[in-house]
């Protein structure tokens, strides 16, 4: 474990806490893409298959349970909760996220480190996570004004993988037998997708104005 990865995990946790706070306290999911939440639940379900078979550390297991639990409960809230579901912006959250699932799965079948069920699903979860934010970014562009909690949620979600990139560079230089170009490639694509969001996020923060993504 290094400081970059720990910061990354805590930033990721922070994004989920911000989202749960928004949904649980103000009982609203306005501006949040259900498609992205469903993709993330799928990412965790396919990545943490080994949660009960491989024990790495208490931290690792606890965090996996938190990510699995929160991602599925957020999907449940947005689909089933009587009040929250009313604020779901169904008309704007129309990105066909199945268009993302299939190519990621096909790519994982072709481009993987080992052709086993677990490894292919794990690779699939990496590729899917890289593009899972797209429905949310599309929804942000369509939403007139983006509220602070939603903006902060997307910011923390984007920042966490950026810390992971630094962690991979750090591990590359400190553990000489460590290289995973598939993970790096997916991580770079994932972080690159946030670049324009980061630009508008910092601009709105600097000028102290409402966050607005150009359509």
């Amino acid at each position: 474990m290094n400081i970059f990865r720990l910061t990354g995990d805590l930033t990721h946790l922070m994004s989920i806490i911000v989202l749960l706070l928004k949904i649980h306290t103000i009982k609203s999911c306005a501006g949040i893409s259900l498609k992205t939440q469903e993709l993330y639940a799928l990412v965790f379900a396919t990545r943490y298959l080994d949660i009960f078979t491989t024990y790495i550390s208490l931290y690792n297991t606890v965090m996996k349970l938190i990510f699995l639990g929160t991602s599925f409960s957020i999907v449940w809230y947005m689909r089933r909760h009587k009040t929250v579901r009313l604020s779901y912006d169904k008309n704007n959250d129309t990105f066909r996220h199945y268009f993302l699932v299939l190519p990621c799965f096909l790519l994982a079948l072709v481009l993987n480190n080992r052709f086993t069920v677990r490894e292919v699903l794990w690779t699939f979860s990496l590729y899917l996570e890289a593009v899972a934010i797209i429905p949310q970014l599309v929804l942000l562009q369509r939403s007139k004004n983006v509220d602070n909690l939603t903006g902060n949620y997307v910011f923390f979600l984007g920042a966490y993988r950026g810390f992971y990139l630094i962690n991979w560079i750090y591990r590359y230089f400190t553990e000489n037998h460590y290289r995973r170009w598939i993970t790096w490639m997916a991580g770079i694509v994932q972080t690159a997708l946030y670049v324009d969001f980061f630009y508008y996020y910092f601009k709105s923060w600097k000028n102290n104005e409402k966050l607005k993504l150009p359509a």
Binding site: R5, D9, H12, D50, T54, I56, N60, M63, K64, F67, N113, W122, Y164, N167, E175, H177, Y178, R179, R180, T183
Partner: peptide
């Protein structure tokens, strides 16, 4: 050398 299995990360 076999790649370190990255499964120790989240």
């Amino acid at each position: 050398v076999e790649d370190v299995d990255l499964k120790d990360e989240l």
